[in-house]
């Protein structure tokens, strides 16, 4: 397993403990940041990730994740957009293995790639990756060319097709720009877990710092078999799945 994690995560096992980051379990906030954590720029000493255990995740769990995301960010209730025009940050997928016939349900959102194609193609640097691995759209720079949507292998991005008002206070969104899962960056920066993770009351979804050897996600990834969707593209996604 360790091979799919980044080279860096073992180099810094010794220093990681100083940051007083404890395990983050889904639903419970265990991290205690230093009081001034929000004053300092995020660094690449962390890489946020998520591990989704499809064997333990029920369909109701997945629906709950989708609802929690909608509630947190306000997407999906666009008045005029129809069908595929509506924003969709996280969706429930059902896939069937052609050989075994096994059907798996899983939530699919932006995979927060380490080598994100959406960032590579964006002409204006609006698509960007934070130092800690969270991929965002800087809507101040987005011109709405939608090239990033062409490039994303996971169909994770949405274009806002109409005027919006009364946005959620932590999630500015507007017509003519592209958006996608932010990994609830506004919560993560406060030391909280993303809304979808919090909505699942079990360890079926684990969120945390992939690099931190003491984190639950790191330790679990070392133990269990996990996979990235379209691993063949070598994007080294931050969202991992086990059981698919």
């Amino acid at each position: 397993m360790s091979k799919t994690l980044n080279r860096r995560d073992f180099i810094k096992t010794t220093t990681a403990t100083t940051a007083s980051v404890a395990t983050i379990a889904s639903g419970i906030t265990l991290t205690t940041f230093a009081a001034n954590a929000n004053e300092n720029p995020v660094t690449n000493e962390k890489r946020w990730g998520m591990l989704i255990d499809t064997n333990r995740l029920t369909e109701a769990n997945i629906d709950g994740m989708v609802t929690a995301c909608k509630k947190e960010h306000g997407w999906g209730s666009e008045a005029h957009s129809t069908g595929d025009q509506k924003s969709n940050w996280i969706r429930k997928l059902k896939v069937k293995d052609k050989a075994t016939g096994k059907v798996t349900s899983l939530p699919l959102m932006c995979q927060h790639c380490e080598e994100p194609p959406c960032v590579d193609v964006c002409p204006t640097n609006a698509s960007m990756k934070r130092e800690d691995g969270i991929v965002l759209v800087d809507r101040h720079l987005c011109i709405g060319c939608r090239y990033c949507m062409m490039a994303c292998p996971y169909d994770a991005r949405s274009f806002v097709h109409e005027d919006l008002t009364d946005q959620k206070e932590d999630m500015p969104r507007g017509k003519g720009t592209v958006e996608s899962c932010t990994l609830c960056v506004h919560k993560v920066d406060k030391g909280e877990a993303p809304a979808c993770v919090a909505s699942v009351n079990s360890d079926a979804v684990i969120f945390g710092d992939l690099y931190d050897a003491n984190s639950k996600i790191n330790q679990t990834l070392k133990k269990v078999q996990s996979a990235q969707i379209r691993a063949d593209l070598n994007l080294n996604t931050g969202v991992r799945y086990s059981g698919i």
Partner: peptide, 8 residues
Amino acid sequence: TLRQGVRT
């Protein structure tokens, strides 16, 4: 804020 996560 957006790029560096500084949320003062």
